[in-house]
Amino acid sequence: MSLPKFAYFVPATIEEACRLLRQHNGRAKIIAGGTDLIVSMRERLIAAEYLVDITRIPGLDSIGHDAHSGLNIGALCTHGQIESSRLIRQRFAVLAQAAHTIGAVQVRNLGTIGGNLCHAAPSADSAPALLALDARARTFSLQGGRILGLEDFFTGPGGTALKPDEILTAIEVPNPPAGYAGIYLKHSPRQAMDLAVVGVAVVLCLAEDGLTCSDARIALGAVAPTPIRARQAEGLLRGKKLDDDVIKESARAAAEAARPISDIRGSAEYRKEIVAVLTGRGIEQAMREARQKVRRKGKS
């Protein structure tokens, strides 16, 4: 189907963008990369009479970092920018891994992290990684900005806590403790160009003994109405020596936290099983990496 007719605005400032959103309350949509929106409009899944293109607003497409406040990713940063950023690959590798699994090169060069989060698909690959990194969403509106924890940002499939005239401007990721390791694992039928049947992000830290888990965060994608944290599974790791039994128990708890549906991509039963498998593997891989970091630190 062809695109329905719509009016198209290209505001130069964020204030102007917010004014346009408010003026066309509920009938306007923000467009950045358009990789989700255009497809949804063609298929008549999303109706929008007005599109507000925010890509010309300066300052929303950079990646910054400082020792105090951590990582700051502009909402207009593309998945391609994120997967190839040296800073992110070195210090927030789990996010680079997640960005790398999205679509194909062409999609990653167009699609933005802000769009990925605001589209709020339960299977969005960047979401579990960011949840596990305890990221926050920074927004702007004419009433003032907000900072939302990412868990509060998602409200349901396709739904976010953003008000109609509020714009996601950046993702803030606090500096994780030294020696942490993170991993994103995705289960899909193909090696590329595929949506997650299950996505699991594991972030963990080991104590100086290289065995005891000092902190852990686990997040799951595509197995609930929103991307979720598996807190009970995390709790089972903290303060424990990570042996096979502990890992297995935590993986089971993650599967229990999942509330998947059965659809054409997989049954609920299979998805739960895959959550357990990927969580277990994620913990093992993160643990191995974290252990190397502890050892390197010990040597230096």
Partner: peptide, 9 residues
């Protein structure tokens, strides 16, 4: 959701 093999498969 109709999944043909990609180059990576």
């Amino acid at each position: 959701d109709y999944k043909m093999a990609t180059a990576l498969d």
